[in-house]
Design a protein around this nucleic acid. Structure first.
Lengths: 128, 128
DNA sequence: CTTATTGCAAAAGGTTTGCAACCGA
DNA sequence: TCGGTTGCAAACCTTTTGCAATAAG
């Protein structure tokens, strides 16, 4: 049986208000002001729990700390190698999964997909 | 100027003889018999160097230790969530990159792509 | 002789975990 | 009261790094 907790609620609220796919540490620091007793371990524990419940999504970039996304629908992400920002790339995965399945003899259940390069604003800056 | 080293050659040879995308630790243990003085730090240093030279490829799965692939051509990988094996999925990335570019306003330079599920042999076992 | 490379061990970075205290049902 | 949740700190896992010694050119 799962009980409600002030900390978990605060974590969900904080994550839902953001579109920047923050790290556990970022969330921890933000919550520290409104809930000074919270600990980093609790943030990690709750984020993992929420991800296991498929309420949120954990995004591994392949380097550095994991990011978290309040949108648990499977979608690809983009990492800007200049400013470090992470954003969504929304498009239908179906064709991609089809293509992958055609080329693989096992059973594909999911896909971690991270594109990298220059985000829109860094791209603009590089032309100045 | 880059000098040749017995250790680096042994690492390349070891990796080239494998198709299982080993971790640095696995390579280290295998080399330990033929070259007992080698250290894990040296294995990491060389693998990173070779990846930077684009001689090999470093594969981040998003969890656990990184894997290494003697094939530096960009291609997707598959991780079996049952047996932990990593294998290649070869197919043309071009359409996928096209699709991603259409849906993103920045400049995409590369793509980390890891599928997961059951590999062929684990799939067979699950029907027994 | 010069300097890239090594082995070693310590440190870094990110995350998990054990445990006693706490709090919600 | 019962057991899920917390805060804390220590442990963990993987990888990087500083440094003196070694070896390639």
């Amino acid at each position: 049986m799962t009980k409600k907790s002030k900390q978990r609620d605060a974590i969900i609220k904080c994550l839902s208000n953001r579109t920047d796919h923050p790290t556990a540490e970022t969330i921890y620091k933000e919550l520290k002001t409104e809930c000074p007793s919270i600990s980093l371990g609790t943030v990690y524990r709750n984020l993992n729990q929420l991800a296991a419940w498929n309420t949120i999504q954990k995004i591994a970039l392949g380097f550095g700390p994991d990011r978290f996304d309040p949108n648990s629908t499977p979608h690809a992400h983009f990492y800007c190698s200049k400013c470090g920002s992470v954003s969504d790339i929304m498009f239908d995965d179906a064709n991609i999964l089809e293509l992958a399945k055609k080329n693989f003899s096992g059973q594909i259940e999911g896909h971690l997909s991270v594109y990298y390069g220059l985000c829109e604003s860094c791209l603009k800056l590089s032309f100045k």
